[in-house]
Design a protein around this nucleic acid. Structure first.
Length: 286
DNA sequence: GAGAGTGTTGTAAC
DNA sequence: GGTTACAACACTCT
């Protein structure tokens, strides 16, 4: 499940390889995954050039040279963006390192081909992801709905405290709320709560100053570490070369229900909070 | 082989 | 508004 660290890893990798590349062809195999007119998307992209790749929360934003349009792309739960360089594309993937399964596959719902014959494949097993061509105004309207963005200068301790403190909902729900903190998902919320030694069920407005501070530290620390290790692959996530993320080895609670806590060896418990599977240590997180 | 579980986000309903 | 439920979908696991 791509969350902020996974989407950021993809953004950085794609930026290095797609910037200034001219699009020569766009194949929409699953029109449902295009918000708006697939035809207009194809016509606008063809012959256009990608000038920059941005990210807001889990949303990728491709800047285009011609026309005041932006391409928004959301991976939702099972989306993948795999890039094949001209060599691997033309050679049919016989190179080294191994390039993974043949592409396109049955989940490749959108394919963008560049002038140098490189190709970008948008794969999505569950088809929840989408692409959308928007105007600058529309893009700004959408990005405005997100809360404070980790890793940016606006993600300060006072901003975090004021965003979280007044909320009466369970902490888990508050941290998952993209309008409060942008980019956290189920995996990293559980990890941040463990880091801060706070039970995810706790109501945000009942947290102490010290607990909030630890949560703030946790957001920064966990996200930075996860990006450093190129994200978490639990099932479907792959980077732009089809490789797994390495942070899963470092997960303390997510996916470890019933296993011993790495801090105190107590069996980790799994429950439902805000409709999501939630794992925590009953000993370390009172 | 049926049914539950997986989790993002928008939307609907309380 | 806070909160909950659900739908979009397809695959794995029980």
């Amino acid at each position: 499940m791509p969350e902020l660290p996974e989407v950021e890893t993809i953004r950085q990798d794609l930026r290095a390889v797609l910037r200034k590349k001219k699009i020569t062809a766009v194949t929409v195999r699953k029109p449902r995954m295009v918000v708006g007119s697939p035809r207009k998307l194809v016509v606008t992209l063809r012959g256009n050039t990608i000038t920059e790749i941005d990210r807001r929360a889990k949303l990728l934003i491709f800047h285009l040279q011609r026309g005041d349009h932006f391409l928004l792309l959301h991976l939702k739960m099972t989306g993948q963006l795999i890039y094949r360089s001209p060599r691997t594309t033309i050679a049919g993937g016989h190179g080294w390192p191994p390039v993974g399964p043949d592409l396109p596959n049955k989940y490749s719902h959108l394919i963008i081909t560049f002038a140098d014959r490189g190709q970008l494949f948008f794969n999505d097993l569950r088809q929840f992801g989408y692409v959308e061509l928007v105007t600058r105004e529309h893009k700004e309207m959408i990005t405005k709905t997100y809360g404070i963005e980790p890793l940016t200068p606006e993600f300060t301790w006072p901003a975090f405290r004021e965003a979280v403190r007044p909320r009466t909902a369970p902490l888990k729900q508050v941290l998952l709320n993209q309008a409060v903190i942008a980019g956290l998902g189920n995996i990293y919320v559980d990890e941040v709560c463990f880091y801060a030694k706070v039970r995810p069920q706790r109501r945000a407005h009942r947290l102490t100053h010290a607990e909030l501070k630890q949560l703030y530290r946790g957001c920064n620390h966990i996200i930075q570490q996860a990006i450093k290790h190129r994200g978490t692959t639990f099932s479907d996530y792959r980077d732009t070369q089809g490789r797994r993320g390495n942070y899963w080895r470092r997960l303390k609670v997510y996916g470890r229900a019933g296993k011993p806590c790495r801090r105190c060896a107590t069996a980790l418990q799994k429950t439902m909070v805000a409709g999501r599977g939630t794992t925590y240590c009953p000993q370390c997180q009172p």
